[in-house]
């Protein structure tokens, strides 16, 4: 009779892990998708039909290529787990709104087939697939990738340049002029009423989405915070050197909200596959990405450097992982 009182589970011999998290790949992926959706919808509403087409074509083709590759590789079809949707969405959110939609499909092909599955599939890729897709499009069609929609930024100024483009080519003064005043500019950039890639403009929605991810624990808060802070400090210190000739005369608030920094720091740099595993490693990663972004923005030929900064840090990830390896408990040296 005593046998019945014993919990059977305690006698169940199995190999580790014994404690399982309730999270799963598809749950995390769909959550990230949903947190991105508000900013994407804002982009579609603000930039119009072509932007929506780019996103729809990009996402659908990403799913299609995932299906085809998995079919060819004779792997289980996992298009329902949302990772292909996420890659397609992130890729197209970083593309200009006037891009011909078929180029988005080419980008999805490069992201899914070359950057993801050629490396071994989900969890094996060295580089962020969405950013590889964007970088490949950037070298393939440089003209189409740097043509932005023309829009009215202030009462009577029509411009077809992103704020960072304007800063690089015309300087800080001209940038302020197009928006009317510095306050107007901050407001427009915070709410997303500015030129740029489809999904990167609306700072407030992206931050809300990112905060939700941090709250859910999918993202370590250190990564976005350190990356954005590094960019802020760097641009504040060196951003005004060329124009005003003094240190600490840059505009950190502008630089924090400009370009793809917010979406990059919250959604790209935190991609679980391509960043270091340990917290210490992730901090080094974020710091490096921030410094590279500042370097490219202020010194490089491109106006925006978040994409390349993250890709460059991606290839350092294995090295960082080795460098910050935690000590084994009880082992000397």
């Amino acid at each position: 009779m005593a046998e019945e009182k014993i919990n059977k589970e305690l006698f169940n011999v199995s190999i580790s892990p014994h404690i399982r998290s309730k999270e799963s790949i598809s749950k995390i992926m769909w959550t990230v998708n949903i947190t991105l959706l508000p900013a994407a919808l804002f982009g579609a509403y603000y930039f119009g039909l072509n932007a929506l087409m780019v996103m729809v074509v990009g996402v659908l083709s990403a799913v299609l290529f995932e299906y085809l590759v998995q079919k060819i590789r004779k792997k289980p079809i996992t298009i329902a787990d949302g990772s292909a949707v996420l890659t397609g969405l992130l890729l197209t959110m970083c593309l200009p709104p006037t891009l011909p939609p078929y180029m988005a499909a080419v980008g999805s092909f490069i992201a899914i087939v070359i950057a993801k599955h050629a490396m071994g599939g989900l969890g094996q890729n060295i580089f962020n697939p969405a950013h590889i897709g964007r970088a490949a499009l950037m070298v393939s069609w440089p003209v189409a990738m740097t043509t932005w929609s023309s829009m009215t930024t202030s009462i009577d100024v029509v411009s077809a340049a992103t704020p960072l483009n304007m800063l690089k080519q015309q300087g800080y003064g001209a940038l302020i002029d197009t928006f009317g005043s510095a306050g107007n500019m901050y407001q427009a950039m915070f709410l997303g009423f500015r030129n740029g890639s489809i999904g990167e403009t609306c700072t407030v929605l992206l931050i809300l989405g990112g905060l939700f991810l941090i709250y859910k624990g999918y993202v370590n808060w250190q990564v976005p915070v350190i990356m954005i802070a590094t960019v802020a400090v760097g641009t504040w210190a060196f951003g005004g050197l060329k124009e005003f000739g003094t240190l600490f005369s840059g505009d950190p608030i502008f630089h924090m909200m400009a370009g793809g920094l917010i979406i990059g720091a919250f959604f790209m740099a935190t991609d679980m596959v391509t960043i270091p595993i340990t917290k210490k490693g992730q901090i080094i990663f974020a710091l490096g990405a921030g410094i590279l972004t500042v370097l490219i923005r202020l010194k490089g030929g491109y106006p925006e450097g978040v994409c390349y900064a993250i890709l460059l840090m991606n290839c350092l990830t294995p090295l960082i992982d080795r460098f910050v390896q935690p000590k084994k408990f009880g082992v000397r040296g």
Partner: peptide, 18 residues
């Protein structure tokens, strides 16, 4: 056809040869 410059550049060559 809008030529994809990546094929002229080394990056495209690497991928293609692979």
């Amino acid at each position: 056809y809008d030529p994809a410059l990546i094929f002229i550049l080394p990056a495209g060559g690497f991928m293609l040869i692979g």
